[in-house]
Simulated scan of single mutants.
Amino acid sequence: MSAWQKILLYLGVLLIILSFVWPYLSKLPIGRLPGDIYIDKPNFKLYFPITTMLLLSVIVSFILWLFRK
């Protein structure tokens, strides 16, 4: 099995797992963490989830580190 086939297999399994736990993940307060920037003005809305992006980056990096070991 080539490396690309393994990557696609792992991504498929990950998507299947995420589809089963999505209802529970949507109830978590991820996306409105302290440190996320939210500006709401009359004609302008800006949402920049800095803290959420950092947290997800750490989690994904850890999962990828586990797969490489």
Rank of each mutant, 00 (worst) to 15 (best):
I17E: 01
L56I: 12
F62V: 10
L18Q: 02
I59E: 00
K69H: 06
M53N: 11
F67H: 06
S57I: 04
P49K: 05
L28K: 02
S19D: 03
L14R: 10
P23E: 03
I37A: 01
V13C: 08
P34A: 09
L14G: 13
W65V: 01
L46R: 09
T52A: 03
L64Y: 02
L25Y: 02
L11H: 09
L8V: 11
K27L: 13
L33Y: 02
I7R: 12
F62Y: 14
M53Y: 07
K27N: 09
Y47K: 11
V21H: 00
Y47P: 00
D40C: 06
W22A: 11
I39E: 08
L66T: 01
M1C: 08
I16S: 15
F20G: 08
I16N: 11
D40L: 10
K27H: 10
A3S: 13
K45N: 10
S57C: 09
L55C: 04
Y47T: 04
G35H: 08
P23V: 04
S61Y: 12
I37R: 06
K27P: 00
S19Y: 10
L14C: 11
I63V: 11
L55H: 01
F67D: 01
K6N: 08
L66E: 00
F44M: 09
R32K: 10
W65L: 09
I30M: 05
L8G: 14
L56T: 08
S19P: 01
L15T: 10
Q5M: 11
Y10N: 12
W65H: 07
L11T: 12
T52M: 03
Y38Q: 13
W65S: 08
L28Q: 07
S61A: 14
Y10E: 12
G31S: 04
T52I: 04
S26Q: 13
L28R: 03
L15N: 12
L54M: 14
K41G: 03
I39H: 06
L28N: 02
W22G: 00
L46G: 07
L33E: 03
L9G: 14
W22R: 08
S19L: 11
K69I: 09
S26P: 00
G12I: 02
T51H: 01
D36G: 03
L56W: 09
I37T: 10
S19G: 09
V60W: 05
F20L: 15
L28A: 10
R68T: 05
D40M: 08
V60D: 03
D36W: 03
L56S: 07
G12D: 02
I59M: 08
L8R: 14
V13R: 07
L66Y: 00
I50N: 07
L56E: 12
L25A: 10
F67N: 02
L25I: 10
K45C: 07
W4V: 15
L56Q: 09
D36L: 03
M1A: 14
T51D: 02
G31W: 05
T51V: 04
I30K: 00
L15E: 10
G31E: 06
P49I: 04
I7T: 13
L28E: 01
I7D: 01
I59D: 00
T52E: 05
I30C: 00
V60Y: 09
W65F: 11
L11Y: 11
T52P: 00
K41R: 15
I63T: 05
S61V: 05
S26N: 08
L54A: 14
W22N: 06
Y38A: 12
L64I: 05
V58W: 04
T52Q: 04
L46I: 12
Y38R: 15
I37H: 03
I16C: 15
S57L: 11
V13G: 07
